[in-house]
Simulated scan of single mutants.
Amino acid sequence: MKKSLCAALLALATASVPALVGTPAHAAPGQTLICDNHRNNPYTGTYKQVTVPRGASCFLANAHVLGNFKALHGAVNVYIIATPVDRNIHIKGATRDVKIGPRHCRFDPTVGNNIIVTRSHNVAICFSTVKDNISVTRNDGRIMLRNNKVGKNIRVVDNLPYAHQPGDGQHPNMDAIRLRDNTAGRHITVTRNNGRPLIADGNSPAVNS
């Protein structure tokens, strides 16, 4: 099974919209970022949109994405830290970690529409304010949603049995799906997750499972 994770490929770079590759840098709002960098050297600028190629990792910190963030073709690690995204975050097939939220969870970045993470490994989404929905599906690693504010629905459905990978660390009940202190305008649904335990408290409305 190919593992996935919310986000990744928006192949559009025209002559009028130059793409940035490699060294992190600030950028003018009209630029598109093709993101492939390392955690110790994050991108921090303002970008029209962000695309993550197959096999790449992307680290954004204290940046701003004016449009969509997409990693759709099998990225490795995706970190979106303290970074507002004005439209959607869509990650599919990330093979390692997907983390979306503030550094040390101290303040909340906003997402204009949706966060969608599918067919990835570890998924952690915390302290994010999302206008529409969070959807976490078909992932096979650790799953944690904490202190998110969502305008419509949170759906954690059809995830796969936990598959340990080197580097996952140790934790009691690593296969458990954890939802703590999330709020949604409509529903929070956690179901059809291949018998994985659910640890949920402080959520509003209560979790449908």
Rank of each mutant, 00 (worst) to 15 (best):
52 V>A: 00
64 H>N: 05
111 V>T: 13
126 C>M: 09
75 A>G: 02
7 A>S: 09
116 I>V: 15
184 A>T: 03
180 R>I: 11
23 T>C: 03
117 V>H: 00
37 N>G: 00
140 D>G: 11
182 N>T: 08
65 V>P: 04
173 N>Q: 13
36 D>Y: 05
58 C>D: 03
61 A>Q: 12
193 N>H: 03
153 N>E: 14
66 L>F: 08
1 M>H: 13
169 G>P: 09
128 S>E: 15
203 N>M: 03
8 A>F: 01
166 P>H: 00
83 T>K: 05
121 H>P: 07
56 A>E: 03
194 N>V: 02
192 R>L: 06
55 G>T: 10
140 D>M: 10
191 T>V: 11
193 N>A: 09
197 P>W: 03
68 N>K: 09
121 H>L: 10
4 S>H: 06
106 R>T: 15
173 N>K: 12
149 K>V: 15
12 L>E: 10
155 R>H: 08
39 R>F: 12
127 F>C: 15
88 N>G: 05
35 C>M: 06
117 V>Y: 03
109 P>F: 06
29 P>C: 04
172 P>G: 13
33 L>H: 00
148 N>D: 14
98 V>D: 06
115 I>R: 03
10 L>D: 14
167 G>T: 01
174 M>G: 05
110 T>F: 02
176 A>P: 11
94 A>W: 01
208 N>S: 14
133 N>R: 09
84 P>G: 06
128 S>G: 04
89 I>E: 03
180 R>A: 10
182 N>A: 04
136 V>I: 14
160 L>N: 10
180 R>F: 08
39 R>Q: 14
42 P>K: 07
197 P>A: 12
190 V>D: 00
148 N>S: 13
47 Y>W: 15
125 I>H: 08
70 K>Y: 05
51 T>I: 00
121 H>Y: 02
27 A>R: 06
170 Q>N: 15
106 R>D: 11
162 Y>W: 12
28 A>E: 15
168 D>A: 08
66 L>T: 10
178 R>F: 10
37 N>V: 02
10 L>W: 03
153 N>K: 14
104 H>A: 13
175 D>F: 04
82 A>W: 04
45 G>H: 00
136 V>N: 01
177 I>M: 05
27 A>M: 04
30 G>L: 13
119 R>K: 15
114 N>D: 13
123 V>Q: 08
104 H>L: 13
181 D>L: 04
82 A>G: 13
20 L>H: 07
21 V>A: 06
199 I>H: 12
201 D>Y: 11
100 I>V: 15
119 R>S: 15
100 I>F: 00
118 T>D: 11
19 A>D: 06
72 L>Y: 08
41 N>D: 08
141 G>W: 05
94 A>L: 08
65 V>D: 04
17 V>C: 04
95 T>Y: 04
70 K>R: 11
41 N>M: 13
209 S>I: 01
87 R>M: 10
178 R>W: 07
24 P>D: 07
201 D>C: 06
199 I>C: 05
64 H>F: 04
93 G>E: 07
56 A>Q: 05
92 K>I: 09
